[in-house]
């Protein structure tokens, strides 16, 4: 799956206006997408319901990318070519992909003293 957010250099929590700005012709970032992919990105990201579903999958694939080492164990199999599917979802250089912009994490939680 293509990660349009990464290609457009925007967050998966980006608002519609920000996405539209990134998708505008002659944008600095659209050159990283083929014409076909850019067309698809516009149709998907500018459609609210589609964008929501797509964003959910992007967030989930980012989680899976970090957890995919679980597939390298003798217990596991790889019948879906996860390396290929998840290759665009490495977000290690970014902050957490979870959208916590709508919450205010409690700062005064206890630090565990005992594991």
């Amino acid at each position: 799956m293509r990660n349009y957010f990464k290609a457009l250099n925007i967050s998966s929590a980006a608002k519609r206006e920000e996405i539209a700005h990134a998708l505008r012709p002659n944008s600095d970032v659209t050159h990283s997408l083929s014409e076909k992919h850019l067309s698809d990105a516009q149709e998907i990201l500018m459609h609210d319901k589609r964008r929501q579903v797509y964003t959910n999958n992007v967030n989930f694939f980012q989680t899976l990318h970090e957890a995919k080492h679980c597939l390298a164990t003798p217990f596991a199999v790889d019948t879906h070519q996860w390396d290929y599917r998840l290759e665009e979802f490495d977000c290690s250089e970014h902050e957490s992909h979870a959208n916590l912009s709508d919450v205010e994490p409690n700062s005064d939680v206890e630090i565990p003293k005992q594991l």
Binding site: N59, T63, E66, V103, N106
Partner: peptide, 26 residues
């Protein structure tokens, strides 16, 4: 969930789930 000071198991797991904690999932 992120505002409460509750520390019961259910709240904690919800936090990990909301945060898409990949290490927890792994």
């Amino acid at each position: 969930i992120f505002k409460t000071k509750e520390r019961d198991a259910n709240t904690l797991i919800k936090r990990w789930a909301f945060k898409h904690d990949s290490q927890a999932l792994a």
